[in-house]
Amino acid sequence: MVRDLGLSKIFWAAMAVTYFFLVLSMYAILTLPESAFDADNAEHVMAAVRLTYVRLAIVAVSLVGYPIILFSSLKYAKYVTIALTAWAIAVYIDDHLVLYRIIEYPDRGVVLFIQSIRPIFLVCLLWMSFELTFTKSKAR
């Protein structure tokens, strides 16, 4: 079934990294300790968490729905991947260039790790988008 799609091994590796990143992010936000809000910048942390909960809903739906779309239609998977990549990049730009004075992520090991591997996650999504757009697949 996987071979029928005609996608490269790099695509599946990128997808695995993406899933790892998103599941880890969900774990980090769902297990956030109460002490995260005790700091001096509690208001900024609260804003970040409020925003992350909204994003979490989209991530949860995408994690479940993406494999279904990928195995049903590569044409629609291409558009969904491009849309999700655009969203992930928009969120990244928002966090670092637009909202950097409004929000602040909790100072916690797993959150710092997630922030540091975020560019790799974006690279994986970009690879998936490019591969679905430009690779000639047997299934298409």
Binding site: R50, L51, V54, A83, A86, W87, A90, V91, L99, I102
Partner: peptide
């Protein structure tokens, strides 16, 4: 059309951010 899709995603994200914050 791809540019429209990207613009819609960016605008939607900005709108949700504005509403939340």
């Amino acid at each position: 059309k791809i540019m429209c899709l990207i613009a819609v995603i960016v605008m939607l994200n900005a709108t949700v951010d504005n509403l939340v914050l």
